[in-house]
Design a binder for these strands. Sequence first.
DNA 1: ACATTGACCTGGGAGC
DNA 2: TGCTCCCAGGTCAATG
Length: 271
Amino acid sequence: MPELPEVETTCKGIAPYCEQQIINDINVRHFGLRWPIPKNIDAITKGQKIQKISRRAKYIMMQLESGTIIMHLGMSGRLHVLTEKTQPEKHDHVDINMANNISLRYNDARRFGSIHWTEEDPNKHFLIKNLGIEPLTNAYNPEFLLKNCLNKKTNIKQFLMNHNIIVGIGNIYASETLFLAKVDPTRSANSITEKEAENIVKFSKDRLELAIENGGTTLKDFLSSDGKPGYFQNKLNVYGKANEKCQTCDNLIKKIVQGQRATFYCDSCQK
DNA sequence: ACATTGACCTGGGAGC
DNA sequence: TGCTCCCAGGTCAATG
């Protein structure tokens, strides 16, 4: 379930507890995630210092001394910081136990997440190397968006969610961004004007930044690593609000399906 | 090269 | 209460 702000919040939440700490052991109770967890991950990482926690797209990178643990939270994954030993519960698949007696516990009900190990440059990993640009950098700007919209007849909502172009804009933020930019999500990408591109870029950055400031959106599943929920759900304009009044015009919010995913929008405000 | 569909999993809620 | 059906924030692989 996590979108980029949740992953960013998770990284910031866990970093103070695990950067510069030594891994005692990694206890895997369930290897079968989206991809199997490497069988030897405990043996490989034992005794290594966690040098840095960072994020690329929705991947959490834990840089150790001889390589990198790459984690994805999938739809339902969570990382918790445990300051004391507690009994693992259902779906607590992995514990990373550190020498400071703190553990990172990975919980993932749907097991769409994954945990990888690579000794190469993590940016060359097969899951990372073809990812598009980060939305919160200057590389993501109206010119970039327009250039990539050329010749794309796919709809603008699915275009925004294409991680080979821009990473980190998930289903919630795609709907929210297009509402604020007043662009109909069914429009083809190549029909987007310069002015609309400016607004899409502006509002997608705004939404993501706001969500990060607020600790990430919490709907059903997400708790940040210290167990506090985010508060962004109160700021959603259209997502999950089918048949409710649009806040701007009193029209009813519509729900449609694009690429098997729900899209919410106001067909009066968004042209 | 691009666009569409299916697949991976479990849990929660709606409806009967 | 219990059953069935539908839905869920991701994203890769296979297919067209």
